[in-house]
Write a protein that binds this DNA or RNA. Structure first.
Lengths: 347, 347
DNA sequence: CTGAAAGCGCTTACAG
DNA sequence: CTGAAAGCGCTTACAG
């Protein structure tokens, strides 16, 4: 591609065999004797032969490239996910083509189109909306893909696709449980973008826990932070201005929790003494001394890895297979923003 | 690639013209009349035609893909750089193929090889070592590439390649200057990986500043942190155990500064009252309330963007052009870890 | 086990 | 301005 390199034909000429023989020898396919095979491989190596992937892709309909659709590469959550994706893809012989869509819906479409024509073998999609027409068109087009973290929820669509998700319901439940056991009865929840299935499930889980523990889930204490740090910060300010402010805030991702933290500190409130704070995702920032955010930690890298494995399986299987739906659990990471260290569980 | 899609030939048949005409019409090349051109484009659109990129790449020797070689996608510094790269590449019609090498040298080689055979049109390399044989082989092979952030320093190599770097020397100088003006005379420096040109230049800058300001640069106060948070933390612990510990520490990246911070806080030392702390890079984590790391902020995203622009220029120019060497400056971001707020500059 | 041939989907000279 | 043909570098049946 880049240089006028030695081709299959060159190797064939040097070795005095047909290009077919070279192709077979180099691809470990039967059809050549071991002696010739060895000789051919040797010659190829000596001449620095590298197959032209474009030609290979053209004839094999197989590019060994996967598209990774993420929101924003600067987002630490997606970043860890991408690390798992890339590492696993590499180990399976695939390359990753990066597609940040930065939340622009039109870009999303463009990207999916582009990726199709670019000839990736499949897509790892981490940005599916609850109702996502693009997913439908992907199915219609027969593009192999896997949705990770966020999945479409429409009937007729959702059953057909491979997914790897977190048990967000449990995570949302766990957060409330931890807070309740610490003695909190007035808990505010800041949810994520409700177009995302994970936000919905997490909210559900939190509400269920509140119901189970008899915690009032009044609308004034339920805010939509849309996974934005800035918005979460605003919501936290609103919450603390209430006549009866919450004694604890559960933000449904760490990024929002950090926004809440800024609000609280800006109000000269102590965490956790005045207000307990709980996040979700376990991003690196939360672990810094002085931040020490208590959070629910999903297996981000594993989610990416698993997604790639499932996708590659599907690509290489050829034949129809059962839909795979993996759900990964999440662990509670107790640090300092909920006050567990100050006396442990009260109930 | 993924689906049996409509091809150029199909469009030609439907439109009743030759494939050449279709190709010309669709690629905005002269050779077809405006009426026919319009008709062809229309038919292509109606039939959801998407060019097969593999075929296109095979014949045009042009894949419109760029390889981005980074160390580790989880590293916030590289992440912001990647954001600039990806965005600019997209705007110029190129895709990014991701290559994390995780510091493994053999992987680095493998990746460069892989990328070549994958047929990327060029490489954005952010991981070049000061002496880097792979860079030499890239030049020999005629692969277009640009080195950003880190560049090889060998004579006979370094003059030949396009680079986008930060003015690390100035950045290293600025950090010391800020500390000196705040009244510090005993300043420790924790440098980065000395196989990286940026670490070398930064260290140089700091040493020059120390010489200019008459600050003793005793070996005991010069530590090599190798851009590792953990190592920086250890070094900071060693520094503070000195009979005459430093009154300020300048870590040559924020990641290391955060390690130093952990060490200092672990020793129950106050920042900046007991020890001033200065970083470099301006990663997101440093901006959190309670961290508020004073730092030198390079134009990370711009560096990525500029790198892509230069690379694409070179790829598309065809003819030999002058080597481009862009140097971006960095700004001092005064936050709270150096104590400027407590009285401003002393001198 | 091996070779000659066709073809993947496109673009590019080259004739008309 | 337009069409027929060759060719990019590979793989895959298909004969020998």
């Amino acid at each position: 591609m880049i240089e006028k390199s030695t081709t299959l034909k060159d190797i064939a000429r040097i070795a005095g065999v047909s290009t077919a023989a070279v192709s077979m020898a180099l691809n470990n396919r039967p059809g050549v004797g071991p002696a010739k095979r060895h000789e051919i491989i040797d010659i190829a190596q000596k001449n620095g032969y590298r197959p032209n992937m474009a030609a290979k892709a053209l004839v094999s309909k197989h590019s060994y490239a996967l598209g990774l659709v993420i929101n924003n590469i600067s987002d630490p959550f997606f970043t860890e996910l991408a690390a798992g994706v890339e590492k696993t893809a590499r180990s399976l012989g695939y390359h990753i083509i990066l597609c940040s869509i930065d939340g622009r819906a039109d870009d999303r479409k463009q990207y999916l189109d582009l990726m199709r024509s670019r000839g990736v073998d499949g897509l790892v999609i981490s940005t599916a909306a609850v109702r996502d027409p693009h997913i439908g068109s992907l199915i219609a087009a027969g593009v192999p893909f896997v949705c990770i973290n966020r999945v479409p929820l429409e009937a007729g669509i959702s059953e057909k696709i491979d997914t790897v998700t977190l048990d967000n319901h449990a995570a949302g439940y766990q957060g409330i449980a931890h807070l309740w056991r610490l003695g909190h009865d007035r808990i505010a929840v800041i949810s994520g973008d409700l177009n995302a299935s994970n936000a919905l499930a997490t909210l559900d889980g939190s509400k269920n826990a509140m119901a189970d523990y008899g915690i009032a889930a009044t609308p004034t204490l339920l805010k939509n932070g849309r996974y934005s740090r800035r918005i979460a910060q605003q919501k936290a300010n609103q919450l603390m201005r209430l006549k009866r402010p919450p004694s604890a805030i559960f933000a449904h991702d760490d990024n929002m929790a950090l926004g809440v933290r800024e609000a609280l500190l800006g109000l000269n409130l102590r965490i956790p003494e005045d207000v307990a704070l709980m996040g979700m995702d376990d991003i690196q920032m939360g672990a810094l001394t002085g931040v020490e955010l208590t959070t629910v930690s999903p297996k981000k890298s594993e989610m990416g890895a698993m997604g790639v494995r499932i996708l590659v399986n599907r690509i290489e299987a050829g034949t129809p297979r059962m839909v795979e739906r993996v759900v990964l659990n999440a662990d509670l990471i107790v640090r300092k923003t909920c006050g567990y260290a100050n006396g442990g569980y009260k109930r």
